[in-house]
Design a protein around this nucleic acid. Structure first.
Length: 481
RNA sequence: CGGAGCGUGGCGCAGCCCGGUUAGCGCACUAGACUGGGGGUCUAGGGGUCGGAGGUUCAAAUCCUCUCGCUCCGACCA
């Protein structure tokens, strides 16, 4: 009965694996590098999908579905794109029992096949903007995998839009970045840094890649979502043209953007502790678990009856589950639900029934509070709101406490090695400095933040920490997943 | 692909060097009783041809060869 998970402080990586397996979020599959998402994990993904889907639709996007297989010739049309993805693709060469005339790539992402269709569907400026999204699985042949964070097959959504002008495409790219930010912060209680990827880190085939980056409890960065302004690169490769109002044939301006089941990994690593997972209330399919406590049959009857009535009231405001399994002790259940991250636990025993009150136990703080039967459902609701809020604040404070402004390379190297964290520093645009940085410190430029804090005299400019060359603004450097 | 480690009931391991009764332990599981406000106790059970193939031997979980898989650390990536 001692399925203790490894302590975070002992070995973060083992802690993560233990948690994922023991909280029954996912399991290793018989296929190398792939995972099985178990009901506990999938429930979180469904919640994420529901919220994001709503946000996409509210901003005018529609869902569609494109094939899993992509003709090899499509993959090869956009030069940068092929270069970026060819090394990590799975390819079907046989169909039925015949060798295929043209090999079929299993989509690592769907730009190519979607834009082949766009070129067919888009004729006039009246057809724009075209705003589609698909929920799908994709396959990338990874060398090293980790549950949720990097698996050979994963689930995601990919949005693909086409616009008449560069500015509209840019606006769309940023609009999505805002949606991701809002989703991460409001629902996942994960604070993010928004900004631009460097040339080196951007998506293969994009003009610009924007991203949201979050800090995990081990102070490493995780890219939680990306939004690409594709410019006209794919439009040219796939001949996606439209006739403008003025009658000219022009290439469309495109965007693509996505978040994946990796978000579940970030949820775990941002909030989890030595007891297990912490699901933010807004993503919890079960927000409250009620644990009845009794000794004999007469107590059991009285407690369950009272619990039943309370649950009816609770159901009007929160999602609640009664754990009336008889073969586990209350203590066992406490640990079990804490491991699984249920935000709020309500204990009800004979004493409570007598007092017309119950005990609330918060997963975020562990705090125990007696609460009267009267108005219980409202109290549960506001407690959940408070948990949601507190989880965000705690994560934000952790990130802020571990973000450092540095102007001396040696100081950075030492601190990065010793403590880790996010480092705000000046780095110039040259690829050379970026590569040197990575080679010498294992840290990379995670993001060039939007709206950087102003330097002295409101200027953002500074000297590159490596070569002393000029740098337009501070960037965030960190070790990353 | 390079380095390290590991494959023994569902899970975690011991046994292996130094071959030899019936392959053992903890947890989980089943039945029952007592229990129940932070992972309860006792009793009685079920379950393994030791990753796979080949070899050495009177005899292999144990020695040898090959092979497959997994985890961790690096190079690639959401």
């Amino acid at each position: 009965m001692k399925n203790k998970i490894t302590k975070q402080s002992e070995d973060f990586s083992r802690w993560y694996n233990d948690l994922v397996l023991q909280a029954e979020l996912a399991d290793y599959s018989p296929v190398k590098g792939c995972m099985v998402i178990r009901p506990n994990g999938y429930a979180i993904w469904e919640k994420m999908q529901a919220e994001l889907d709503r946000m996409f639709k509210e901003t005018g996007h529609q869902n569609a579905y494109f094939p899993l297989f992509i003709p090899e010739s499509f993959m090869k049309k956009e030069a940068e794109h092929v270069k970026g993805f060819a090394p990590q693709c799975a390819i079907v060469t046989i169909g039925g029992d015949k060798v295929l005339e043209e090999r079929l790539y299993i989509r690592p992402t769907s730009e190519t096949i979607i834009y082949a269709m766009y070129s067919k569907w888009i004729n006039s400026y009246r057809d724009l903007p075209l705003l589609l999204n698909q929920w799908a699985n994709v396959v990338r042949w990874e060398m090293r995998t980790r549950l949720f964070l990097r698996t050979t097959e994963f689930l995601w959504q990919e949005g693909h839009t086409a616009h008449a002008t560069h500015d509209e495409a840019e606006e769309e790219t940023l609009k999505i970045l805002n949606i991701y930010t809002e989703f991460l912060e409001k629902f996942m209680a994960v604070p993010v840094l928004r900004g631009l990827k460097t040339e080196k880190e951007k998506f293969a085939g994009a003009l610009r890649t924007y991203c949201v980056e979050a800090m995990m409890r081990d102070k490493k960065a995780l890219q939680a979502g990306t939004s690409h302004n594709l410019g006209q690169n794919f439009a040219k490769a796939f001949d996606v043209k439209f006739q403008s109002r003025e009658g000219n044939m022009e290439y469309v301006w495109q965007t693509s953007w996505g978040v994946s089941t990796r978000l579940i990994g970030s949820l775990i690593m941002v909030h989890g502790d030595d007891k297990g997972m912490k699901i933010p209330p807004r993503l919890a399919s079960t927000q409250v678990v009620v644990i009845p406590i009794y000794r004999d049959d007469s107590e059991k009857q009285a407690v369950l009856e009272a619990a039943g009535k309370l649950i009816e009231k609770l159901k009007t405001r929160v999602s609640v589950k009664l754990d009336d399994r008889d073969h586990y002790s209350p203590g066992w259940k406490f640990n079990e639900w804490e491991l699984k991250g249920i935000p709020l636990r309500i204990e009800i025993g004979p004493k409570d029934v007598k007092n017309q009150s119950v005990i609330f136990v918060r997963r975020d703080t562990g705090e125990k509070t007696p609460v009267r039967f009267d108005g219980l459902e409202d109290h549960a609701f506001t407690t959940l709101e408070d948990i949601q809020d507190n989880m965000y604040k705690t994560a934000l404070k952790f990130r802020d406490d571990n973000t450092f402004e540095v102007d001396d390379y040696n100081e950075f190297k030492e601190k990065n090695k010793r403590d880790g964290g996010f480092f705000s520093m000046y780095v110039c645009d040259s690829n050379k400095c970026e590569i040197k940085l990575q080679e010498e410190t294992k840290a990379t430029i995670r993001v060039i933040p939007l709206n950087p804090p102003g330097g002295k005299n409101g200027s953002h400019k500074g000297k590159c920490i490596l070569c002393n060359g000029s740098s337009k603004q501070r960037v965030i450097v960190a070790k990353a997943y």
